[in-house]
């Protein structure tokens, strides 16, 4: 028996928004520890890694590990039937071929349940080593979304360069060039509005704007976002999900021919 009850159901709705542009389907791996999902997009350029810890749920029960393959388009349709205020429960029997979503209104006067067929997915998993990155940049998530949107107008690729002075985002294309420089915040009233840079060595990498823009669909999950970079390795873009977990995106850089 698997059962996970989330008082703040809107979080699951936001998680779905953060996944569905990159992934058509994914396996939700459930264990004692919580729910994890790891999947690459079709082109194997980016990877989404979601972690929702058991402690973050109001009620969590997982008698045996199970991997539920879900069509995210279908799941998204179902979650659209939940109100933002609803409490959401995900339930499945052991070895079941369906999963049930239960939506309860806050005062319990409306309860809906939706059963969805599970899929057999044979997905590749990647082993992602713990890495000490040469640069980590924390910035407001809305600022990052704005930068990705603005620079996408100039070209397909964006260069992210980090030095101790700050971080520079640049794109070049037919109409010209755009450069956005962010300096580290000198002082801030609110932690989530800060730009904080930790740098071991300067890094400059080029990434496809299309994927970065897809990552920013997670903006509503967190006020800030962390970018981690090292020379010639994939970028990590991490959004914390309140006190329940995180969604991380990995993006392979463009490489010189």
């Amino acid at each position: 028996m698997f059962e996970a009850r989330l008082l703040q159901g809107s979080l699951l709705k936001k998680v779905m928004e953060a996944l569905k542009e990159l992934l058509n389907e994914a396996a939700w791996d459930c264990s004692d520890a919580g729910i994890q999902l790891q999947a690459m997009d079709n082109s194997h350029v980016s990877l989404v890694s979601l972690n929702l810890r058991a402690e973050g749920f109001d009620k969590y029960r997982c008698d045996r590990n199970l991997s539920m393959g879900m069509n995210l388009g279908s799941m998204s349709k179902i979650l659209k039937c939940a109100s933002n205020e609803d409490i959401i429960t995900i339930k499945a029997q052991d070895n079941a071929d369906t999963v049930t979503f239960v939506f309860e209104s806050p005062d319990q006067d409306k309860v809906s349940d939706y059963e969805m067929k599970l899929m057999n997915l044979d997905q590749e998993h990647l082993g992602i080593p713990e890495t000490d990155y040469a640069c980590t940049i924390r910035l407001p998530s809305s600022e990052f979304a704005r930068i990705c949107r603005d620079l996408s107008q100039f070209g397909e690729s964006m260069v992210i360069s980090c030095t101790k002075e700050g971080v520079r985002f640049s794109a070049t294309g037919d109409i010209g060039t755009g450069n956005i420089k962010l300096a580290q915040s000198a002082k801030v009233d609110k932690e989530e509005e800060a730009v904080v840079i930790e740098m071991q060595e300067p890094v400059s990498l080029t990434f496809a704007c299309r994927y970065l823009n897809s990552f920013t669909k997670a903006t509503s999950l967190s006020k800030s976002v962390q970018l981690s970079m090292s020379p010639e390795v994939p970028l990590v873009v991490e959004y914390k999900i309140e006190d329940i977990g995180h969604v991380r995106y990995y993006l392979a850089p463009k490489i010189e021919d």
Binding site: S43, E124, L126, G127, P253, D257
Partner: peptide, 14 residues
């Protein structure tokens, strides 16, 4: 020129 890298060339497939 530049080409788009793929993640499976950076990380081990389990």
């Amino acid at each position: 020129g530049q080409t788009q890298g793929r993640l499976d060339t950076f990380f081990k497939v389990l």
